[in-house]
Computed example of a mutant assay.
Amino acid sequence: MRVPQISKKKNWQIFLSGVTIGGCISWLIFIYMFGVLQEEQTNIIERQKADITDLKSHISIWQEEFKKLNKKNQEMLTVQKVEVKITNFDRYKIEDSHSIFEVEEMIKEDLNVLLAKDLNTVYQNKDLIKKTIENKTVKINDKRYNVKVKEIYFFTKVQIYLELRLAT
């Protein structure tokens, strides 16, 4: 069997030219649609990049503001509570915890002026606070004791640890 000649059959020529032209047209339509979709995707990506950049700059601005506010608030901290503890009362065999409590409360009352004061101011006056406490002579069970400051911690709660010494 042999293949018929194309030049003699017009139907075949029309068919093949139609397939070729249809393929070219469909290819052009495909390229156009693909280009339009890709352009839309590119525009979306560009908008998202711009949004991300904008949001990152907003985040950095907010973070800087929060850092400044935190720093400012930390500088403006005030004393909320004063806590006094006597650590060596068992050395002098003082078993009366009520007397120890009264001495701690008495010293705490003297230091109530520190409440609601700026933490920086209180820290700067720590030597004055220390001398105020150490000049006290307390009486427990008919014995007189001097108070010595062992440690002082400053934050919103001022913690003072004291030692008792026999008064001479």
Rank of each mutant, 00 (worst) to 15 (best):
M1I: 06
Q5V: 04
Q5W: 07
S7E: 03
N11M: 08
Q13P: 03
T20P: 05
I21Q: 10
I21V: 13
G23C: 03
C24H: 13
I25C: 09
I31E: 15
I31W: 13
Y32H: 09
Y32G: 03
M33E: 14
V36I: 08
L37D: 14
Q38R: 15
Q38G: 15
E39W: 15
E40L: 11
T42P: 02
I44W: 12
E46N: 12
E46M: 09
R47T: 12
Q48P: 03
K49P: 01
T53C: 10
D54A: 12
D54N: 10
L55G: 02
L55N: 09
H58K: 15
H58T: 12
S60C: 07
S60I: 13
S60E: 14
I61A: 10
W62R: 15
E64G: 06
K68E: 15
K68I: 10
L69E: 12
K71Y: 10
V82K: 00
E83W: 11
E83H: 13
E83V: 12
V84R: 01
K85I: 02
N88S: 05
F89Q: 07
K93I: 04
K93R: 09
E95A: 09
D96F: 07
S97R: 15
S99N: 06
F101Q: 15
E102S: 06
E102K: 11
V103E: 04
V103M: 03
E104N: 04
E104I: 01
E105H: 10
I107M: 03
K108E: 09
E109W: 08
N112C: 06
L114T: 02
L115Y: 09
N120I: 00
Y123Q: 02
Q124L: 02
K126C: 08
K126H: 13
L128D: 02
L128C: 07
L128H: 07
L128F: 05
I129C: 01
K131G: 03
E134V: 00
E134Y: 00
K139M: 11
K139P: 04
K143E: 10
K143P: 01
N146E: 08
V147H: 04
I152S: 01
F155V: 05
V158Q: 00
V158A: 01
Q159L: 04
Y161I: 00
L164K: 00
R165E: 08
R165S: 04
L166C: 03
L166N: 05
